[in-house]
């Protein structure tokens, strides 16, 4: 039976080889925090980390992964919502409907991992997830907050 290393645990699953990683996470492993939005890697709602890199899991066949690759989903980002990005999101009351936010948080966490003090231009280039509720300014502010950049350029506010 094929295996994946998800959130530090080796998990066995049964699925056709061409099943996207997203649907194995959601349906075989019951990790539904990773969302389906478009299925064509446009919206980023399905963003997970693979060996620390952000990846859109909806277009990656599960057969492309081995158990040596460390997959982290939103459920594994921190044990209790205490990742700096999650804390900043809470402090700035970022989510509205919240559906895109797990992918947004994963994208932001990956950005900060690689670039601890991103500029607005860095955020523009790296955060390409779609949010239909329109939380972008608070997302920007919360990334700066998590980076310890102090007063953010965006108009999100601390409440």
């Amino acid at each position: 039976m094929p295996k994946l290393n998800v959130n530090g645990v080796i998990r066995e699953f049964e699925a056709e080889e061409d099943t996207p990683l997203l649907w194995v996470l959601r349906e075989q492993l019951q990790l539904t925090g990773t969302k389906y939005g478009c299925g064509i890697a446009q919206c980023g709602a399905c963003t997970v980390h693979v060996d620390g890199q952000p990846m859109r899991s909806c277009v990656m066949p599960v057969s492309a992964f081995t158990e040596d690759q460390k997959i982290v989903t939103i459920e594994g980002l921190s044990p209790d919502g205490s990742h700096p990005v999650q804390k900043a999101w809470l402090a700035l009351d970022v989510p509205q409907c919240g559906y895109c936010q797990t992918g947004m948080i994963m994208a932001a966490a990956a950005l900060l991992q690689q670039n601890p003090k991103p500029s607005d231009a860095d955020i523009d280039a790296e955060i390409t997830n779609i949010c239909r509720c329109g939380t972008y300014n608070r997302v920007r502010a919360a990334i700066h907050e998590a980076a310890g950049n102090g007063a953010a350029n965006g108009s999100g506010r601390r409440t």
Partner: peptide
Amino acid sequence: DTADKLTGKQVYGID
């Protein structure tokens, strides 16, 4: 209603 939206715990219809 924010906390569960940050951890994947929030259940949407699709979940």
